[in-house]
Design a binder for these strands. Structure first.
Lengths: 344, 344
DNA sequence: CTGAAAGCGCTTACAG
DNA sequence: CTGAAAGCGCTTACAG
């Protein structure tokens, strides 16, 4: 069932060159020949062998997406998964196929993989190790980094304006009258968590309501479980600390903390207002839904792919850093009314 | 920076054949030659060109994963995303790379894509169109189906025992004393939702507590929003119907319905017990956490890949259908105590 | 133990 | 407008 150009040529009584020209649409061919060849292509359900084509064209039309993962697999991740989705969609539209690879300690090995596979380009998401990046730099493969913690000059990097987003969150809470916020801060080695804490702290300082040392708790991971655990551990402190609000540097931790609070029958937002960061799907689904700062995950994916495609085609790339605009999303956890509250 | 076997050969003063032998480890080569070649490979950071190798070996070491999506992108999907993750992990372990493609109307085109790309095999997840399957059948590419609605004889199909799972859920609710359950049933064209409704209904009938017509509501999608909307629309009916429990054919709908109920200040599980199906990550994170029937998503992915690999290597494949065992997971939404309740 | 040669399935100048 | 030939970067019998 697997036909080649040679077989088509034989049946059509023309040369392989001609068949190739007809199929690719490049070069001159008579209408007559075209019909003849195309008909056979149809009959045989011929599909050109992409591997052979890639070989001569030195172009695979594949891109690779490398996603860092800490503990868990990553495709289902509410944040990175969304970025991946956007990349998949954009790439398909431009006839690229995409290799997906999640990466743990095997860093170098997986990068090699991609390199051996001869992808036309690479998108690196999150905290890809420096050694991996160095290794990639040694090749001519273009790459784009998304939400990374370690990018160097010359790298194209797509990020959210995390510091600004955190300031918006702080301003908003301050505006609501909150003067004492408990903060759950994710791993400070990660750019996002670092900037989010920084932005929140600075904004509060500017408002004259500095965060005390004891009101900021450092998380070693940024998971739901961590948020829950920390809230549990600091519950006594929290309860007696006079806190009226809670800010976490991402939604997952905020949600975890919220679950614990709800289990203690704390009323949200009446007793404690909660704000997260990211706007993962879950945030709006929770009860109460979570006020958060939205990161344009889809936009990150689209931009990453679009820029990579330009790089691959050696078109000029406008800028070397893309900083997306964050946006406050107000929901029930800071007081937005429930849709159906009191109705019916 | 892109070296070939030819360059290695030149520098080592041997032939390409020899270099190839050293690198592949096949065929005899003197220790001396090996050292010489390997040293240069090191120096040059040589990576064999996978495309060229695939060409001659007629084997790419790539597999493709095709996931159906209805409305939304899919990688971040809490159910399919998990399966994908498991496939990614297993595949990487055996040195495969994986193409991921989500599919909507473009069905045929995306399958072609895979076929042109010469993947060694395909994993088809969820409701892949019959035309796509037919098209794939025309080629020699082995494939495995996961959680599909339309598989034919001879196809290898991996599914959860959905009917059985629903029976377990029904038995459990009955055992708790529930005699009047409101049911949210997802699209009946999908195998899973169909069997889950069927199993639940039959089990209840056997217990002598048949579901009345009005207690089963058909959903047109199986999303969170749909669960919420339906619960809202049937709220009056539900409130006055004397229902003590709610079953949805998947977690997302159950969660959506639950959010609505919580917003009406319905106490869960005291007033209404809720049971879902799938055990997506969210289920355990919700407040109250959701009792559900777990589908072994990771196992599905692992089995799918493992079988596909056997197919690719033309090893005998044990069975032609894999039916995974569902498992009831009891949580707060049907009465499990909160961990920290009352403590401290 | 090693090298020359053919071939995997295409594309693309180059003649004609 | 079309065909013969070379080549993309490997692997693998086949001689030696």
């Amino acid at each position: 069932m697997e036909f080649t150009i040679k077989e088509i040529a034989r049946r059509a009584g023309v040369s392989k060159s001609t068949v190739s020209r007809v199929i690719s649409g490049k070069g001159y061919t008579s209408a007559e020949t075209q019909d003849k060849v195309l008909k056979i292509v149809q009959e045989l359900q011929y599909k050109p062998n992409a591997v052979a084509r890639a070989m001569v064209l030195q172009r695979t039309n594949n891109i690779g997406v490398l996603i860092y993962r800490e503990y868990h697999p990553i495709a289902a991740h509410p944040f990175y998964g969304k970025i991946l989705d956007a990349i998949l969609t954009s790439a398909t539209n431009l006839n690229y196929s995409v290799f997906v690879m999640t990466d743990h300690e095997i860093s170098l090995r997986s990068a090699d993989f991609m390199l051996e596979k001869r992808v036309d380009g690479l998108i690196l998401i999150s905290r890809i190790g420096q050694n991996v990046i160095d290794s990639i730099k040694n090749f001519e493969v273009p790459y784009i980094m998304v939400n990374s913690s370690n990018h160097a000059d010359g790298d194209i990097h797509i990020v959210n304006q995390d510091e600004k987003g955190a300031r918006i969150a702080a301003d908003y809470l301050y505006g609501l009258g909150h003067r004492n916020t408990f903060v759950l801060a994710g791993p400070q080695t990660h750019r996002s968590h670092h900037l989010r804490l920084k932005g929140f702290r600075h904004s509060m300082e500017e408002h004259g309501t500095s965060l005390s040392l004891s009101s900021v708790v450092s998380a070693s991971t940024s998971t739901f479980a961590e948020g829950y655990e920390l809230m549990c551990r600091y519950w006594e402190h929290f309860r007696t600390g006079g806190y009226t609000s809670l800010f976490a540097t991402n939604d997952m931790m905020a949600l975890g903390a919220m679950k614990f609070l709800l289990e203690q029958s704390v009323r949200i937002p009446e007793q404690v207002a909660v704000v997260g960061f990211d706007d993962i799907d879950f945030a709006s689904m929770y009860s109460p839904s979570l006020t958060t700062v939205r990161v344009e995950k889809e936009e990150m994916g689209i931009q990453a792919f679009t820029l990579l495609d330009k790089l691959i085609r050696k078109e000029p790339v406008p800028m070397h850093n893309v900083e997306l605009e964050p946006k406050l999303i107000v929901r029930q956890s800071t007081g937005l009314k429930k849709c159906h509250e009191g109705s019916e």
